[in-house]
Design a protein around this nucleic acid. Structure first.
Lengths: 115, 115
DNA sequence: TAAGATATATAGAAGTGCGAGGCATCATGG
DNA sequence: CCATGATGCCTCGCACTTCTATATATCTTA
């Protein structure tokens, strides 16, 4: 069994959370599930990473939260994007794309070809 | 000026260094320049990140180093991939691709469609 | 009443990146 | 002859994030 766990690079989790919340208010537990589902299990978010990240984003004013009832009738903290958070999401998404393109260039370097 | 500094996500630097060294032995200073050039300036590697990373990779047995003379006649530490390092590079490159695809799926989620 | 899924939270450990500094050599030009 | 800038290596310590482990509580089902 090789390493099937795909640890998220530092800073990436915030972007994913912002994106997961962008559509409609969701509570933490569901965010993790949503990310895992959409990424087909590649992205996994342990709770010890998720909740500190949510509080971080809330403190920075990128997320806001309200307590509501879930479908199952339990109280849960539903997070939503603030205006600032949406802006941040756009910026981070663009930055991510720039970065992946740049790294793509590097990984595309010939390493067996000529020079 | 917005944030023009492109911080590398944690763990990515190792991959880039391994790749930069994969073709031929290079010394640290040149690795940073190579990465910056190929990525068109998006990836920047400060020395405070570079040298600790090189030592890390050497200690893990992924890189090996020899002192040689550069074109300019100066002594420099040339790093090369070990067999283990090459294997690691392949694994990390594959992992990176899996990850970017997964994140691509997430970022591709509709968030502004309805409502 | 026990188990398992749902749901939130914190503490501590571990790892990484980066700024700031220090050292040394070589080429250039005043 | 000496100052400057580019080359080239290195370490210290802060800051930040992630993960493992743990604690708590509710609801459903058996």
């Amino acid at each position: 069994m090789a390493e099937l766990k795909s640890n998220l690079p530092q800073g990436t989790l915030d972007l994913l959370i912002l994106k997961a919340v962008a559509f409609d208010p969701v509570h933490g537990y569901a965010i993790a599930q949503r990310l895992e589902q959409v990424s087909r299990g590649v992205v996994q978010v342990p709770e010890g990473s998720l909740y500190p990240a949510l509080h971080r984003l809330e403190n920075r004013g990128l997320l806001a939260a309200d307590w509501k009832k879930t479908d199952t009738g339990r109280e849960a903290k539903f997070y939503r994007l603030t205006r600032k958070g949406r802006k941040q999401l756009e910026a981070e998404a663009a930055g991510w794309q720039r970065l992946t393109e740049a790294i793509g260039l590097i990984l595309g370097m010939a390493d067996g070809g000529a020079q």
